[in-house]
Design a protein around this nucleic acid. Structure first.
Lengths: 218, 218
DNA sequence: AAGAAAAATTAGGCGAGCCTAATATTATAG
DNA sequence: CTATAATATTAGGCTCGCCTAATTTTTCTT
């Protein structure tokens, strides 16, 4: 069994690899984990010995297949717990991250299998992130950033890349929810503001920063 | 916030105080926690500084009010999670202890309040142990050990003092469930075996060891 | 290609929570 | 009341996961 610290490293490395390609740098990991580089070097040597990461001195590192499966397992647990917290316990989508960060480290395969069944095998978490199945397979749903769409095109809002409470609350405030259909009405060249048309014909103007944090499918 | 190790000490001390009166010995705690006495001495000095226990060198120790409330909070979480695991996820009553041992260390008051409400404010866990409310108050239910009853008397089976999987499975096997009415038909002087009459007129013979682990109310 | 800047590693330390071994204290038996 | 047994404490060590400071390696700038 892996320690919570190791699991946090695995998850962070997995996400960095997803975002930035193959090799991950010591500094990048130190930054996202909020710890010092020397600590990362320390830990990676240990995780390398355990064959969780392939580590090349001064060249960065990447997950081994063993490490990748472990990372996906943790992500699966995190997202399933988030679904539980929102769907069953009535938390808001901006409240669940921290609690799920703790729950994801509970060790019991049986527990997670039963939780999955209890939640009726959800495919995405409350933020639209895909939940891998028990075999570690993600139901593929190719989505693009709203910021990559051109005026006139539309799609369904299916996820966010910013999970901060501040951002999620902002979405609630402007009345944007997962599953809504969004049409890009206009992109202002000058300041890159996006004018969007929501389902109820409602029109909202959002910044590039926001448009770049919304995932659109279909 | 307390560490998991501290929480385990608090819980163990609370239980020892419940069972054996006021002062708890270093050796007793070392035994139930499965660690060495020297480690207990170490930890208790720290917890004493934090005012969680009142510690008298070589005389034993007891929880302060602060420590008592913390301990009850952990027991509350443990038992609520056990209810969740059995009632919602479908675990058997002999499977939940270990998982609840992990879940009890999740830190979120909001979570436990919402879980309590979701479970409809249960008064007891799957083993019949009382669940303290949010204020730390136990709904009193004076129960006695079946082994203290005389032939002819009867009552309702409301709890166990042995939580081992082996014992709980045995109860399942002989068809004894929480809430059943039990009548003591006979107590064999020679070997202290108890002959019990269960609801469906079924009669079973159990050892003193078993009779001494069953809690009877009413 | 050299010097500066950035990134990574090494060396030495620290607190938590455990350990063993040695010592001290308290309780018990004769 | 003393000897022994049981209990408890101290002293010193260990691993984990982090730290700072110093040093080395790599990358960028010019």
């Amino acid at each position: 069994m892996h320690s919570s610290a190791e699991e946090n490293y695995l998850k962070a490395i997995y996400k960095l690899q997803e975002a930035n390609g193959e090799m991950v740098a010591t500094s990048a990991l130190a930054q996202v984990l909020g710890i010092h580089m020397a600590s990362v070097t320390d830990m990676l040597k240990k995780m390398s010995t355990k064959k969780l990461v392939a580590y090349q001195k001064s060249k960065g590192f990447k997950l081994t297949e063993k490490g990748r499966l472990a990372a996906i397992g943790i992500i699966r647990k995190h997202r399933l717990w988030e679904v539980f917290l929102v769907d069953k316990l009535g938390f808001r989508w901006d409240e669940v991250h921290e609690i799920a960060e703790q729950l994801e480290h509970i060790h019991s395969q049986d527990l997670i299998d039963k939780l999955d069944a209890y939640l009726d095998f959800p495919k995405t978490d409350p933020h639209g992130d895909p939940i891998p199945d028990a075999k570690g397979i993600f139901a593929i749903s190719k989505s693009v950033l709203l910021a990559s769409l051109t005026p006139g095109s539309q799609g369904k809002f299916t996820g966010v890349t910013d999970h901060s409470s501040a951002f999620l609350n902002y979405l609630d405030k402007i009345g944007l929810s997962l599953g809504d259909t969004i049409k890009v009405k206009e992109v202002e060249e000058f300041d890159k503001n996006y004018t969007l048309l929501l389902k109820g014909k409602k029109s909202v103007v959002v910044s590039f920063k926001v448009a770049n944090s919304l995932l659109i499918s279909e």
